[in-house]
Simulated assay, not measured.
Amino acid sequence: MHGEEGNRLGLKLPYGASLFVREENSCYLELFDLIETRIKRLAVSSFDITQMNLKNTHVEELVLVDEEALEFFYNSTENSEFYVEKVSFGNKLNPKSETFLRLIERVHEGETAAPRKIKNLVLGRNSFFGFLEKTRRISQRKIHVEEVVVTQNGKGTGPETSTRIVVSKKISITGNARVLLFIELGPELNHLDIDELQRQCRSPRIVLRSTS
């Protein structure tokens, strides 16, 4: 899709622009010069991101929409020539897949080629408790994210694990309130008092209503 130097006569993106790239519209990338560019938000679906010439480009947020995009990005991180500040995981991903978990490990271990932070983590389709079980292998036992969206139905109490998800900016929970037992709030959210809810979650004699 790109030559050695890319399309140096192409259009330059103004700062603040966002891109959504999938296989069907990837041909239009030929119109742009993306080398040494700062992209605010780049969402990728079923597309190999290495097909884009992003040499010396800074991506503030990379959104991996589906499994194919995740696989392509994960397999290219060691040889990538662009910098990703934050990564977001879309709702079409399987949070218990090996590639998903390995990328989260890379972020938290501070690998040079990995994104620096996780911006948005979506755990839908009753995947929250299963995700926690799988992430026991992360040595820090805390997964730091800016935003988390959880949909967990049923009355399960969750796994026996010390792993916690630390949320710094935004939280949305639908369904089982016991999800809160595995959540910690960062300084920007410490005005939200969830201690009483967590206490109720630990009591087997209290029936909890679903929360959102």
Rank of each mutant, 00 (worst) to 15 (best):
H58D: 14
I171P: 06
I49K: 01
E85S: 14
Y28L: 10
K86G: 04
I206C: 07
V122T: 15
F73W: 00
V145C: 07
T135R: 02
S18P: 01
K40H: 15
T157K: 12
F129L: 09
H144P: 08
G6I: 03
K40Y: 14
F89V: 08
K92P: 00
S203N: 15
D48G: 05
F131R: 00
T135F: 08
G154L: 07
M1P: 04
A177L: 02
L101Q: 11
T157L: 11
N120H: 14
F20S: 12
V167Y: 02
L185D: 10
R106S: 12
I194E: 05
E67W: 03
V150Y: 00
N7K: 09
Y83C: 10
N190V: 12
T163L: 06
H191N: 14
G3A: 05
R205Y: 15
N7P: 01
K86F: 09
L29R: 04
E98R: 13
L208W: 06
A43K: 12
N94S: 12
A17I: 13
N120P: 00
L42C: 04
F131H: 04
T50V: 11
K170G: 06
K119L: 11
G175P: 04
V107N: 00
E147I: 08
S76A: 13
I138A: 06
G154P: 07
D195P: 02
R137P: 05
E133M: 12
L11V: 10
K12A: 10
L181T: 06
K142C: 13
R102V: 02
T57F: 05
T157Y: 10
T37G: 07
Y15M: 10
T174W: 02
T37Y: 00
F182M: 00
N75S: 13
Q140A: 14
R116V: 13
E60L: 13
L29M: 14
N91D: 14
Q51F: 10
V63N: 07
L9N: 15
R199H: 02
I194R: 01
G130C: 03
I118E: 00
V167E: 10
E61W: 09
E109H: 06
L34E: 10
H2Q: 02
K169R: 15
I118G: 00
Y74Q: 08
K170A: 09
F72R: 03
N120R: 15
L185S: 10
E81N: 15
E85F: 12
S210E: 13
R178H: 06
F73L: 01
L197E: 07
G10Q: 07
L103C: 06
S203G: 07
Y83R: 09
G90H: 08
A43T: 13
G16W: 09
F129E: 03
T174D: 07
N176P: 03
P115K: 09
V44Y: 02
S139Y: 13
S46I: 03
K169L: 11
G10H: 07
K170T: 14
G154S: 06
R116N: 12
F128M: 03
S162P: 03
V149F: 15
F47N: 04
S88N: 08
F32L: 09
S80F: 10
F72K: 03
M52T: 06
V207Q: 15
H58A: 05
I165M: 07
N79P: 00
E98K: 15
T161D: 04
D66R: 07
L54M: 07
S139T: 14
E109G: 01
P159H: 03
